[in-house]
């Protein structure tokens, strides 16, 4: 077991967003976290990356507690979070956005190497290195956001709705890329999606959340084929 979340509860002031969440993900697995708008998916990722405090429960990555740590500390432990809505800084250039992910390591050569690998993965970014991130298309921005996270050389990647607001053809590409890179880099991925079908297709396991509670979890292909779940939560 490597990412273990147990009995996790989180609230926004008086609104309770997660109530006793339990699930776990093995190293190298891709887990799709599925749920409707407002189910608590973003809250889950923000808690796991240290942006949000939990009320109770535990979450461990490789047997060490991650709750109560700051995001920059967790980055040093190999956890990178691509937050909802194209997590790039538009005022900076593409290259600067990428460098950002490597600053914490302090070694410029490492960062340059990591950036080269990202450019190999996303050639489109390579062509636009000195452009402002502001000028990128939605899909390119999402790639840049993921690229920035990869420059930090994560072991656990938290992705919050990478397909949000993108054209269907671009969505297809994004999912393909995620599938490729996690095999290539041996990443553990927590992929939050409303696009249930596409996400489950590339996932090993699925975690279905509704109103802040886990309603089903299991191998992705079983979830896809469960008629009751399909009707109730997957929407087809």
């Amino acid at each position: 077991m490597s990412l273990v979340v147990s009995n996790l509860s989180v609230s926004h002031g008086a609104i309770s967003a997660l109530r006793g969440i339990d699930f776990s993900v093995e190293v190298g697995q891709l887990a799709a976290v599925i749920g409707a708008n407002g189910a608590g998916k973003t809250t889950l990722l923000r808690t796991l990356s240290g942006l949000k405090d939990a009320i109770s429960g535990n979450a461990t990555w490789k047997d060490r507690e991650i709750l109560g740590k700051r995001p920059d500390e967790l980055v040093r432990r190999g956890i990178s979070h691509v937050s909802e809505g194209k997590s790039v800084i538009p005022e900076l250039s593409v290259k600067e956005n990428l460098i950002l992910g490597g600053i914490w390591r302090g070694k410029k050569s490492d960062t340059a190497e990591a950036i080269n690998e990202v450019v190999e993965l996303f050639p489109r970014l390579g062509e636009r290195m000195s452009q402002s991130a502001n000028t990128l298309s939605g899909g390119e921005r999402q790639m840049l956001a993921i690229g920035r996270a990869l420059v930090s050389r994560p072991k656990l990647l938290l992705l919050d709705e990478p397909s949000l607001g993108l054209a269907p053809i671009v969505i297809e590409q994004i999912f393909q890329t995620i599938d490729q890179l996690r095999h290539r880099l041996g990443l553990t991925v927590l992929l939050v999606e409303q696009n249930a079908m596409s996400a489950l297709e590339i996932a090993d396991i699925g975690v279905i959340i509704n109103l802040g509670e886990v309603v089903a979890t299991g191998p992705a292909n079983e979830l896809i084929n469960d008629p009751a779940l399909r009707a109730a939560y997957l929407g087809y």
Partner: peptide
């Protein structure tokens, strides 16, 4: 890099922090 970190933290503290910047 310090300058980049300063600018990034000013523009978007959250993203800077997620990128590992203190």
């Amino acid at each position: 890099n310090l300058g980049l970190a300063l600018r990034a933290s000013a523009y978007s503290p959250e993203i800077a922090q997620l990128a590992g910047i203190r």
